[in-house]
């Protein structure tokens, strides 16, 4: 049976959840990876599919094509700004955001940005849109930093999301992670989301847990994944048990099946 913990956001709640994480560390083996690959390969797809927790929560329902907006850019810029302000402590949060946005614009003007990337979108946007991106990113970086400042253990901003390409299954899994808190031999992953958690927030967290473990070369799973919804003041967490890892993998495969069905229905 999987275990989902629900708490209201309050001072030190994150510390309590981190300290209460299981001590043992589990790892996904090559057999697990082969088994997952076989299941994904059984779900035929002509196109490359990219699955994440959001799709799991929506049960594979088709979504609008991605477009950059201040809201979709805030996490990328905000996390990078927080990372930068950690390495350069003299920078204010606003300065760090401004430098990150400048870096993105520089990439676009120097020709390193591919079409459709955040850098090229920012370069084509008006100063007021870029300003709004900065405002959103400052919001994000500040709320993430406020969560992190309470942590008693050392923490770091995740260098990137977790990505795992399922071999020969035309499938990429993407797991969100914002803060990493090392804990003994293992780690606790903190993920921040906007809005309020829905009924399927638990399966979404489990999907992130599984993808995070798959993306680790050793397969070592996080001892706990914590989902923080600052707007709702809610914290959920799932443990890195084998049951939760299996449930996460099952949900991802089910989502691939549902996604494929929706695509076939739309095509017909």
């Amino acid at each position: 049976m999987t275990k989902l913990t629900h708490r209201r956001l309050s001072p030190h709640i994150l510390n309590r959840l981190i300290e209460g994480a299981p001590d043992e560390s589990l790892a996904l083996t090559d057999d697990h990876r082969r088994s997952l690959t076989a299941r994904f390969r059984a779900v035929a797809s002509n196109d490359h599919r990219r699955l994440d927790a959001w799709m799991v929560e929506r049960a594979g329902l088709p979504y609008e094509p991605f477009r950059w907006s201040p809201a979709s850019a805030r996490r990328v810029v905000g996390n990078a700004a927080l990372r930068r302000s950690l390495s350069e402590p003299t920078l204010t949060r606003g300065d760090a955001v401004a430098l990150e946005v400048s870096d993105q614009l520089l990439r676009a003007t120097s020709g390193y940005a591919r079409p459709g990337s955040l850098a090229s979108w920012l370069a084509q946007s008006s100063p007021s849109v870029v300003g709004l991106v900065s405002a959103e990113a400052a919001n994000w970086a500040t709320q993430l930093d406020e969560a992190a400042q309470e942590l008693e253990r050392p923490w770091s901003v995740a260098p990137s999301d977790a990505y795992y390409d399922v071999a020969r299954a035309r499938t990429t899994l993407r797991g969100r992670r914002d803060l990493i808190v090392p804990r003994g031999l293992t780690r606790v992953v903190l993920r921040v989301r906007a809005g309020a958690p829905g009924k399927s927030a638990g399966p979404g967290l489990r999907a992130d847990l599984t993808i995070d473990a798959l993306a680790e070369p050793t397969g070592l799973a996080a001892s706990r994944v914590i989902g923080l919804w600052p707007e709702a003041g809610v914290v959920l967490s799932v443990d890195g048990t084998m049951e939760d890892l299996r449930a996460g993998a099952r949900d991802l495969v089910r989502t691939a099946v549902a996604w494929q069905r929706h695509r076939l229905a739309r095509a017909a």
Binding site: T92, R93, G94, D95, A135, A138, N139, T142, Q143, A194, G195, A196, E231, A232, G233
Partner: peptide, 16 residues
């Protein structure tokens, strides 16, 4: 409005 005051704008809140 100094950035040292950590200004955040249009912050949403949702309480059930």
């Amino acid at each position: 409005l100094s950035s040292r005051w950590l200004p955040r704008t249009s912050l949403r809140a949702y309480q059930r």
